[in-house]
Design a protein around this nucleic acid. Sequence first.
DNA 1: TTGTAAGCGTTATCAA
DNA 2: TTGATAACGCTTACAA
Lengths: 342, 342
Amino acid sequence: MTEAANDTAPRRPVTLTDVARRAGVSQPTASRVLNGSARTVADSYRTRVLEAARELGYTPNLAAQAIARGTSRTIALVISGISDPYFSAMATELMKQAEKYGMRVSIAVTERRVDRELDLVRELRGQQPQAIVLAGTGYVDPPNGDELVAELRRFEETGGRVVLISRTDLPFETVTFDNHEGARTLAAELSTLGYRRALVLGSGTPLLSMQQRVDGFVEGFAGEATIAYPDFSWEGARAHIRSLPDEELRSLELVFAITDDMALGAIAGLRDRGRRIPEEVAVAGFDDITTLRDVVPALTTVHVPLDQVAEETVRRALDGDAGGRTVPAHPVIRASTPPVRR
Amino acid sequence: MTEAANDTAPRRPVTLTDVARRAGVSQPTASRVLNGSARTVADSYRTRVLEAARELGYTPNLAAQAIARGTSRTIALVISGISDPYFSAMATELMKQAEKYGMRVSIAVTERRVDRELDLVRELRGQQPQAIVLAGTGYVDPPNGDELVAELRRFEETGGRVVLISRTDLPFETVTFDNHEGARTLAAELSTLGYRRALVLGSGTPLLSMQQRVDGFVEGFAGEATIAYPDFSWEGARAHIRSLPDEELRSLELVFAITDDMALGAIAGLRDRGRRIPEEVAVAGFDDITTLRDVVPALTTVHVPLDQVAEETVRRALDGDAGGRTVPAHPVIRASTPPVRR
DNA sequence: TTGTAAGCGTTATCAA
DNA sequence: TTGATAACGCTTACAA
């Protein structure tokens, strides 16, 4: 049967002092045993401490360690949202990499609100992480860019590291994939397939990396490209397509959206308007998110090697300046953009 | 005043002491101004402190606050993975709710490894969060259940709160949706549509909530249900369908998978085998994940009101025992399960 | 090798 | 209202 729990009164957590007292040693000795110290401790003591810790169910108070050591084995990641397949994949890869180095990743979410990014960084600084990683967003003309830079500089000055992913708008180390080149080669391949008229869906919010994709595509495309800038979302892309004038819709040959997310929104819009894909309209995206495995027809896109990006990022977050790095992004032609028959 | 502190980059982060000194007040006064204290401070002091803080770019050291206050405004969330649309949606909702109460959510990932759950909880306890929320998993016969319970009990004893989401395998407060009833009513509606032979894809790993879905479906289904237990994943469901004997495949009328993720895997498998959906085989899932908006034909499923779940969870994580709660889950019939024509 | 004592940045207590 | 001063749990010189 169950033993009667005598007291439900909230006790305080077991501390290192408790363990030391129980083991009959000093607090520092207990500390040396339990948390990797270079110092060696006599075996007899060591076992007594370990046993006491086990019996009491001791867990080191991370906050106390952080404050005593002046650093916490944490990488703070700022992303715009967790539900987004692209960002969640990125977060997963980063956590995987970080774990190799015994690092924790804490995630903060901007919800795509520009001002929150600054607030977040400010707050994160209070967590004294080893590094702050900013993924996503990256405005063409950052509204509060100066303040953000100042905040990040301050963080660097106190020994922290700053790494940006896929954004080159701030003067810090950046790991990126080649947005421009990826879109350019995609456009080239699509041109080879026979496409000559494209609608490019860019980002309504002026994001640098997204503009690079637009520019890259236009540069690599052999035909005529019309550019639109709907809201930067699935819904935005869908709404844009839905509101297209009939004649423009009918003349549509290929839609390139700067993200798979928007490409899928565009497809939804095209279907709403009764257009068949890819028979009547071809569609291509960018990112190669996991969701695509369930989409029919299979979506042509540009694959981004997130694992490599994550690896490079974590390395820079820890080891110090390795310099910026750009990993290549390659187009993947699938069923949504078949060769054009004329 | 004494030294030129304005242009010299401090190697250590700016502390409350720095701010106090600069403002010419005591540390406690600065603390009272900068961090919501009930105490009031003379306006002249208040402005001086605020100004000094701004000039120096002060950010409170969260670890120090946590240790001094004995509590950190944090909810620790344990989920099996971040890339999974269901869990990432859950995490998003929880963060949204938590923010209302000025709470931070820290995310830890088990990667579906049973043992990691225990390790994680142990480590999280070291973060001294206000609450630990365990979402997902929940084994029918927990391998190290006793240890996990002991660890969580310890956490509760020291004033922490434990909330489980959609798992009833541990003796703690639980917020759940009605897996059994949701699956049962879905099965009933499908029966009404004329379906009489179903293949049910359960979970290879024995998860309690998943078994409830299987049981609920079987109970509510008017015809004959065959149950299989492939690996609990998209790939598992797909592989199972792919390896089905020809005759069994041909006799397939309806596939119900316990999660949308597996349902989508099943669809992939069915397509690999050349079966058309829904003309030849109907498919239904559970969860109503966002991904479904891009899937054709639209997938019949059971909608889970994650926002409600999140709200109830956060409330319990903070306010104390409100008792367990079950929110209803309703079937949504879509194009993947049309009425049967005979 | 072990223990004493001094921090780490913040909050809480309690005089003044 | 304000400011010494003592915690909070842990690490790290420095002394024994």
